[in-house]
Design a protein around this nucleic acid. Structure first.
Lengths: 137, 137
DNA sequence: TAATTGTATACCGCATAAGTATACTTTATA
DNA sequence: TATAAAGTATACTTATGCGGTATACAATTA
């Protein structure tokens, strides 16, 4: 029931970028140092954020990363899902073959867990990075 | 961000017991068969539930397990915590030394994750096993 | 054309999850 | 009072995924 470390790093990286003038490009090395993230691992994470359209990457000299949209339009859910994929708190919620009862009857556990999951998703959607940034003050 | 399999099994086992007249003792073998749980693994899980005071165990011939309290007084949170320990969606929420910023400043990520965690805990507390049982009909 | 950036892919080591095995204790009952 | 039927305790196994590295490569700028 834990977010993984990569997600934590991703959130902090996006938060970092959110503190800069929009469009400003920052090299990975700088983020890694300031946020205390192992460099090569960060690069891997940034690629996921890039693929998810949260961040834009620039290669070559003076390359780096910049946000692809305004901080107010990036939610924590966006970042979590970019790294971990869709949220699923129980494997039976994505892969029905894992239902230990094989769907033989109406399953209140499945239902309750799904409701919990939905509430988490909604909760994560509430937070955008402009908000988080403001909360730092 | 997943509950583990043991927790799923635990929930289903408690749900199973909740369907019986209060105090009725059922042997592990039966639960294992009906709920499709590997026998020896179930025994391990049941011990955690026993230690948590959710279930009572009886050894020897005609032994087995019975609920220690009424289904209406057992919540999903009780069961989840019995198996997984206290909920912590980010390691920085329990072990401050994992804070990648070393507490050097006010951390909105920590704060937001804590709020999410609290909402999950509250949510899990809402569900008791009498409710879940009724939902099966 | 060389230095500086990110990309792609594959790999490693460890911790944890999920499950199994072995030996033991308790209890009912024949 | 012995024995079979239950759970207990502990240690082991096996597989998976997490967190992180390494190597080779591609793009870009000066």
């Amino acid at each position: 029931m834990k977010l993984n470390q990569a997600t934590d790093y991703a959130i902090r990286s996006v938060l970092h970028l959110s503190g800069l003038p929009f469009g400003q490009v920052v090299e990975a090395k700088l983020i890694a140092e300031e946020e205390n993230i192992p460099m090569r691992f960060l690069l891997k994470i940034m690629r996921l954020l890039t693929q998810a359209g949260i961040v834009e990457s620039y290669r070559g000299v003076n390359g780096g990363y910049a946000l692809a949209r305004n901080p107010s339009e990036i939610t924590m859910l966006d970042v979590v899902e970019a790294i971990e994929g869709p949220i699923a708190i129980n494997r039976c919620l994505i892969a029905p073959e894992y239902c230990s009862k094989n769907f033989s009857e109406h399953c209140p556990v499945h239902e309750a867990l799904f409701e919990l999951q939905q509430s988490m998703v909604e909760h994560l959607k509430q937070y955008n990075f402009q908000m988080l940034r403001e909360r730092m003050k």
